[in-house]
Amino acid sequence: MKNHYKLTISVLTYNRPHYLIEMLDSIMQQTYHDFYVKIYDNGSIDNTGEIIKPYLKDSRFSYHKFQRNAVENIRIPFDQCDTEYFIWAHDDDIMLPDMVQEELSILENNDEVGLVTVNSNYIDEQGIIFKYSIYSHISINDLVIPRQGFFALFANGKTIVCCPSVMYRMSIIRKYNVYLHYEYGGACDIFQWMEINQYCSMYYISKTLFHYRKHKNQDSQNTLCLDPLLKKPILSLLDNYDNSDILRRKWLKFINRRIFDELFKSKIVPHIAYKTIRHAIFIPHKQEFLFRLKVYFLVFAPLSKVQIKIYRRLRRIFLRTIRS
């Protein structure tokens, strides 16, 4: 039976009960209370099921456990949401008390907005803030991102959406079937926002209302191939955008830049460089790319026989993949 709440907050967790408690406590401390909380356990093998029992005494809370830890489980909370609004929360972050109230106010007073996010702090494993208001350098004021405007921000390196702080208008999700594509891994949320932004605007609240935790076991840190993985789907998506040719060129240049960023970070660890180039299916101005690749090797890797062999192999891979 459909519940009477306006909002569903779904918390996906896996073997992090110490962080999960902090998230659930922050949800209970919200100034807005008309919501339903679904805790999705992605097959934890620790005591998660025990530590959440006190929260289940609140009729707004429910617990659902998957049999195994699987990436496809991340879409299920969206599929099972039957309320007007939805938050997809992570177990290791913290909501500040006014977050839900302020986000909901934006959606209820702006019909053209389909997604709202907030400014956030970075916290460490102990919950200590080490960077305040992480998006203030992009905008010190509230920001309306017009339809098809998020892509340009992202391609210019201005990521202004913090995934677990997002509140969705579910009518947009259902009408246009813009659910998460779990096959894109850690990039699935970015692609979903671009899809949603085809049909509606997005809203950024400049007030800091969220703590985003950064730690070594974080799933979203491994983003080496995030951009190459999304290359083809985003190029297809841009066909539906206005000025698609300009945006496609912007996206390919962005991938080019990101691939070199990853190469420089890798300090020419051969298997990482290999993996990076292997995903470069097509890059504009291929001769420029190959020149930059050669310069990279000259600067960061003395051209010994081994390094020359690696360079030539990467070059062959690159040329072969752009032809395929």
Rank of each mutant, 00 (worst) to 15 (best):
M1K: 07
L7D: 00
T8W: 03
V11N: 01
P17I: 09
H18S: 08
L24V: 14
L24N: 08
I27L: 10
M28K: 10
D34M: 10
V37L: 02
G49D: 08
E50A: 07
K57M: 12
S62K: 08
Y63K: 01
Q67E: 08
Q67K: 13
N69F: 14
V71K: 10
R75E: 10
R75Y: 12
F78M: 06
D79F: 14
Q80H: 12
D82M: 12
W88K: 14
A89L: 09
A89H: 01
M95V: 09
L96R: 04
M99C: 13
Q101G: 01
Q101H: 12
Q101A: 11
E103H: 10
D111K: 07
G114P: 01
V116D: 02
T117A: 13
T117K: 00
N119A: 08
Y122E: 00
G127L: 03
G127S: 08
G127A: 10
I129V: 15
Y132R: 05
Y135M: 04
I138G: 04
I140S: 05
A152C: 03
A152K: 10
L153S: 03
K158N: 09
K158S: 01
K158Y: 06
T159W: 06
T159G: 15
I160P: 04
R169E: 13
I172M: 12
I173E: 07
R174T: 09
H181A: 02
C188I: 00
D189V: 08
I190D: 03
F191I: 09
I205F: 05
H211L: 15
R213L: 06
N222I: 08
N222H: 15
L226S: 01
P228L: 07
I234H: 06
S236Y: 13
N243D: 09
D245W: 02
I246M: 07
L247C: 04
R249Q: 15
I255C: 10
N256Q: 14
F260Y: 08
F260K: 09
F264Q: 12
K265W: 05
P270M: 06
K275D: 15
F289C: 04
F291S: 01
F297M: 10
K305A: 10
K305R: 07
V306W: 03
I308T: 05
R312Q: 14
R315D: 02
R316E: 10
R320C: 02
I322S: 01
